[in-house]
Write a protein that binds this DNA or RNA. Sequence first.
DNA 1: CTTGTGACCCTAA
DNA 2: ATTAGGGCCACAA
Length: 120
Amino acid sequence: MTWTWPWVARGLPADRHTGHVLPTPFAERVLDLVAAIPPGQVLTYGDVAERLGTRAPRAVGSTLARFGAGVPWWRVVRAGGELPAGHEREAAGLLVAEGVRLLPGAGGLRVDLVAHRWPG
DNA sequence: CTTGTGACCCTAA
DNA sequence: ATTAGGGCCACAA
C-alpha cells in the first residue's frame, strides 16, 4: 500500500481500542484502487465502484470523504467529469498541475474524461 | 441548462 | 436487527 492513514502518519495508533475509526475492507479496496490512479488520469466514482465489483458509487464517495486524505482523491470525479463536491477548487489546482485538461461548464470546470479517463 | 425522483449499496449509529 | 443518510447516478420534465 502506498497510502497511509492520516492519523497513522501523525504517529497516532490505528487501533479500535483507541477509539480511532478503522477503514472497513470495502474502504481498503477503494483506497488501494484510488492510490493506483496515475497522475494526470482520473476515474469516476462509478468507475471505482464498478472495478470493485459493486454498484455503490455513493459508498465510494463516503469512503473518500472519511479516509481519502492519504490518497489522490482529486483523481476521482463525478460521472460527467465534474469535480468532487466541496473540493472543486483544490481539485482543480491539483489536476491542472498534473496536466489534466479542464473544460468549461456551467456549474464549473469539468475534466475532459475522453482524454484523461484511466483505462486501467 | 435546471430540478425532482427513485434506486442503489455501504456505513455508522 | 433496523434506520438514516451519503463528495452518486440515470432518467425524466
